[in-house]
Write a protein that binds this DNA or RNA. Structure first.
Length: 164
DNA sequence: GCCAACGTTGGC
DNA sequence: GCCAACGTTGGC
């Protein structure tokens, strides 16, 4: 059995928040709507059931990591690509040759406190995190085991004093 | 609302 | 294959 891996997924809380995930039956949902090839390849080729997931709120005030989740299925086709009524409909995709793949995500725990982007940026141990790279827009991205541990450790520490 | 950084599209 | 135009993401 392969070692557990770690990931970060972004979601705009206005469209789907961590609370929305907690409200789902079994706290799980199909992580649909990803329409970026690099993110698709990660979902399809690398994510495995049981992997750890950091749940990040983008376009939020402030943007922050709010919770933990896990990959709860293997990869399978995103049904929204076949649905003409969906915003995610892709006329170029067919059931025989699906273009977009997803996995299920299940919430496991809310963080002790939200970790704001600003605070993450100030932690030198997270310098190499994909989320913090300038211009990074990937909505599904890898996290190293060290980064995962550091994020969890930060959440257990007290919030830093505001700097402004 | 602005805009930098990317990704995609399509003419050539 | 190049690259300009356009669309999207997402912090600020």
């Amino acid at each position: 059995m392969a070692a557990r891996r770690y990931w970060l997924v972004k979601s705009e809380p206005e469209s789907f928040s961590f609370d929305d995930l907690l409200a789902c039956e079994d706290q799980r949902t199909a992580w649909d709507g990803v329409r970026n090839y690099q993110a698709r390849n990660t979902l399809r080729d690398s994510m495995q059931s049981g992997d750890g997931v950091l749940f990040y709120h983008s376009n939020a005030q402030p943007p922050c990591i709010v919770g933990l989740a896990e990959v709860a299925s293997g990869p399978y086709p995103d049904a929204t690509q076949f649905d003409p009524a969906s915003d995610y409909f892709d006329p170029g995709a067919t059931r025989d040759d699906p273009r977009w793949i997803l996995v299920d995500i299940r919430a496991t725990a809310r963080l002790e406190r939200p970790l704001e982007l600003e605070e993450l940026k100030r932690n030198p141990k997270l310098d190499a995190m994909e989320l913090l790279r300038k211009g990074s827009r990937l909505s599904v991205q890898p996290v190293t085991a060290e980064q995962w541990r550091e994020v969890l450790a930060m959440a257990k520490r007290k919030a830093p004093k505001p700097t402004k």
